[in-house]
Design a protein around this nucleic acid. Structure first.
Lengths: 121, 121
DNA sequence: TGGTCAGATCGAAGAGTCTCGATGCGTTGC
DNA sequence: GCAACGCATCGAGACTCTTCGATCTGACCA
């Protein structure tokens, strides 16, 4: 359903600019950078898997030792990816004794999903 | 509302593994890579801006010359980013005469948003 | 046919990312 | 106290991404 609604300025001569001179910016640069930061966190297969494994884990939380084996990466690498997810506000970290438990921040993914739909409005 | 529902295996001895031995993988690697590819396309501020500018433009479509000036980048760079968005299935390209018109693929962003909510289930 | 214009592609420079082994820090148990 | 354990941090190496100027490809016009 690709709507080709209008021929934009079809009578414009070739010498002039092809399109509308003014573009109303829907997403300002700062907001775009903010959005991109969140999406960049999800732009790695390992992090998507980590997120889903944590979400599917018992109690909705998991420690690092739960995650290294399923993704097949070293402990420092997994720790690195988890930090990125925490910085993006998608995961929460809680230290309990020797272990660090990670859990999905409630509503964070839904918020991103809502922003996606909103951006396309 | 961070639900700390259960202390996972609190009675387990230190010598054993800390957590559940088996992890049911929510998102298989192939699906995770697919998801990540889409999100990576949105993981750059320039591409988020390009997407929103195209969406906000008259008729929901814009050509490259509409986009270079607002984002302040060279034409090859904008062309490069647009190609990435097209490859990710977020933008559609249509050549009309001298100009190439880009438009947001209907439903593509909503689909991603739905996947986000689904992944957190 | 030849000139001009919009846009894609190419090659290269610089910055950023992913991954690892080694190491440091705090907690637990003896 | 001391050893063991879980995890974060620190370089380092390899790779990818972003960006640009230069160039190529098609479409239009005279």
């Amino acid at each position: 359903m690709t709507t080709i609604a209008l021929e934009l300025a079809p009578a414009a001569p070739t010498s002039g600019p092809c399109c509308a001179p003014l573009v109303r910016e829907a997403t300002d640069p700062a907001a775009a950078a903010d959005l991109a930061r969140s999406f960049k966190a999800l732009g790695d297969p390992t992090r998507v898997r980590l997120l889903s494994i944590v979400a599917a884990h018992d109690g909705g939380e998991a420690c690092v030792c739960d995650l290294t084996e399923p993704v097949g990466l070293s402990q420092p690498t997994v720790s690195h990816h988890l930090k990125i997810l925490v910085d993006a506000g998608l995961l929460a970290r809680e230290q309990r004794g020797k272990w660090a438990y990670y859990s999905v921040v409630p509503g964070s993914l839904d918020r991103l999903g809502a922003l996606l739909s909103e951006a396309a409005r």
